[in-house]
Write a protein that binds this DNA or RNA. Sequence first.
DNA 1: TGCCAAGGTGTACGCCGTACACCTTGGCGG
DNA 2: CCGCCAAGGTGTACGGCGTACACCTTGGCA
Lengths: 199, 199
Amino acid sequence: MSLADAAGTDVLSMRKLAQELGVVPMALYKHVANKDELLDGMVDLVVAEIGPPGAGEWKSAMRARILGARRALRRHPWAARVIESRTAPPPALLGYLDSMAGMFRAGGFSVALTHHAMHAMGSRLLGFSQELFDDTGAAPDPAFVRQLARAYPHIAEIAGAAAGHDAASTVGACDDQVEFEFALDLLLDGLERLRAAEA
Amino acid sequence: MSLADAAGTDVLSMRKLAQELGVVPMALYKHVANKDELLDGMVDLVVAEIGPPGAGEWKSAMRARILGARRALRRHPWAARVIESRTAPPPALLGYLDSMAGMFRAGGFSVALTHHAMHAMGSRLLGFSQELFDDTGAAPDPAFVRQLARAYPHIAEIAGAAAGHDAASTVGACDDQVEFEFALDLLLDGLERLRAAEA
DNA sequence: TGCCAAGGTGTACGCCGTACACCTTGGCGG
DNA sequence: CCGCCAAGGTGTACGGCGTACACCTTGGCA
């Protein structure tokens, strides 16, 4: 995990890991069956870093726990990608999801609505979500940005990428955390409304 | 794309593709700079299969287009994974996202709210979302399922996996399309509420 | 007629995961 | 004290991958 934290999952190969450990690659196979099992184990450890659910009303308890999960995932930037790559969820992940489902049920959700809710939340339960673009990379060359803004005016407007350009944009640089919480609250509020309607 | 459709992206290697084309691997590099460029091109073609936006009120127009995108993605099961793997969005994808942002703006969303909305929708704009589990695999051995149900009672309850077991579960097998539309409508309704509040 | 660009070829390198056979070592029962 | 045996490290090798680089073929046009 230290190696992955430092160098990224793409650099984590059995060979590199063995080298880091001062050992020959095949030695690792005395401890894990294969690379997938290694990755599963890493996921389990990350999930273990997420604390237990807190008490209180379902929505705020779940919100807090999800933000906790997000912090854990943030400490290990490779974790989200690795989790996505798993074919079957590692045991600790299943345990976590189970307890999240339990929080819905305890909050008064029917079985069916809990099912829908779990799907609707998807990876957001673990504090991440797949964005189709990362505006994080910062703008390179102004001329290129201008051409890009011409080709994709709405995106430019949104991104505030045409900095000072034509768009009197009210959005500054993009804050991941704010966007995550926005979407999270949108979902939680919607679910709460459905729960109330159900009762 | 035919090769990927038939065999899955994991099987699509430059060497296999070349073989399929009756050509030596290196011949491909006269047409694409590298494998990433090939994948970018494939994504562009998939995105091109999504039609133009329809007319009408923003919510139903966007709903229809997203479900169209989902159909396109469904025709090419590898597409979602390949899109996730891109570091920079291919041009056609940017164009699509731009037009989606345009639909929000035309529907009366402020720039800022459009920005939030785009993030909140995330990959759902393209008709897919990352699920942490696929209940598609069908239940294998009843004894195993029972043990699993004991370890993860809420998941079992939700999945209806404990078929006929203790949970008088009202959920049957899990319908991806239904779950997708549930979450989609949850988001669209929430956004519409915010738009109305903004006005 | 000769050239030249487009595109196919062959060889090679360095990476990957991992199968298989082997060796070292330390602790424990006899 | 001896011998064994399990845990764990080693070495070699295979088949896959993406792709750099030098080379060859061919068809159309000046």
